[in-house]
């Protein structure tokens, strides 16, 4: 797998799954998959001697090859599947001495019915253990060649008003990402991938860093995976009026 722009299926964690937490509040289990970095599932009365296990049971087996655990404080922990936290992925997915709050795991495609996220030690000793977002997904595809132009940004949903003194008043409702990528040398394989995504009828996760999680620039960090709809027309065009030398295509996507 390369390091170019990638697309993933929607999160397999939904309202249709069953959630079981050792001590955390199960009534807010949607915090695990709400894509909101301000909400989190957090243990209650736990410490480094007491494991906190987040168990996810899917309504039917799902095929996955990538897991993102975002906004967490796991120093030591494991991620397994099976019926009772008994089977390791390949390669083994775990944290040991971890100090970064966002993790991406890639592994051999595996069909799972249950996932077990075992949080053993927190980054700060005996602190309550938490996870903000958990995405279990499968790679749809990776472009063979990155876009020649990439316009990425965020758009606020907000009210901007004015007080009597001319001072500004703002009320922010949310922020969503959007990208406009211009491919000037898209291979037939890439155009086929774009057609698949365009025709999917579902949003997809877009990962601009291509799995290189060392970037620190906003939009390219580990946590910057955006669930997006394809919003422009699917219009692959001939390059220089010739066939066989790649295609021109614009991909415009907006976060859902």
């Amino acid at each position: 797998m390369g390091t170019n722009l990638k697309f993933y299926e929607d999160n397999k964690l939904t309202e249709l799954c069953t959630y079981g937490f050792t001590s955390a509040n199960e009534s807010v289990s949607q915090f695990l998959y709400d894509r909101d970095p301000t909400t989190k599932i957090i243990s209650v009365g736990s410490d480094d001697d007491t494991d906190e296990v987040f168990q996810v049971t899917f309504p039917s087996p799902v095929l996955i090859d990538t897991i993102f655990v975002l906004g967490h404080n796991i120093k030591l922990g494991t991620l397994r599947y099976g019926t009772s936290d008994d089977i390791d992925f390949s390669p083994i997915l775990n944290w040991s001495g971890n100090a970064t709050p966002n993790t991406m795991f890639s592994f051999t495609p595996t069909t799972v019915s249950k996932l077990f996220l075992r949080l053993q030690d927190a980054m700060i000793e005996d602190a309550q253990k938490f996870v903000s977002n958990f995405v279990a997904t499968k790679l749809i595809g990776e472009v063979q060649k990155n876009p020649s132009k990439l316009d990425f940004g965020y758009k606020d949903a907000k009210i901007v008003g004015q007080t009597y003194t001319g001072g500004s008043y703002t009320a922010l409702f949310g922020r969503k990402a959007s990208i406009k990528a211009s491919f000037t040398d898209a291979s037939d394989t890439d155009v086929s991938l774009f057609r698949t995504i365009h025709d999917l009828g579902d949003p997809v996760f877009v990962q601009m860093n291509g799995g290189v999680n060392s970037y620190t620039q906003d939009g390219f960090r580990t946590q910057d995976i955006f669930l997006m709809n394809w919003v422009n027309d699917f219009e692959p065009k001939l390059k220089s009026d010739m066939i066989g030398i790649g295609a021109l295509i614009d991909v415009e996507m907006k976060e859902v």
């Binding site: 008003g161 004015q162 007080t163 009597y164 003194t165 001072g167 008043y169």
Partner: peptide, 11 residues
């Protein structure tokens, strides 16, 4: 607080 005040909250 409205017009003519320092920190108005009447729009």
């Amino acid at each position: 607080l409205g017009a003519g005040t320092q920190f108005p909250d009447i729009f």
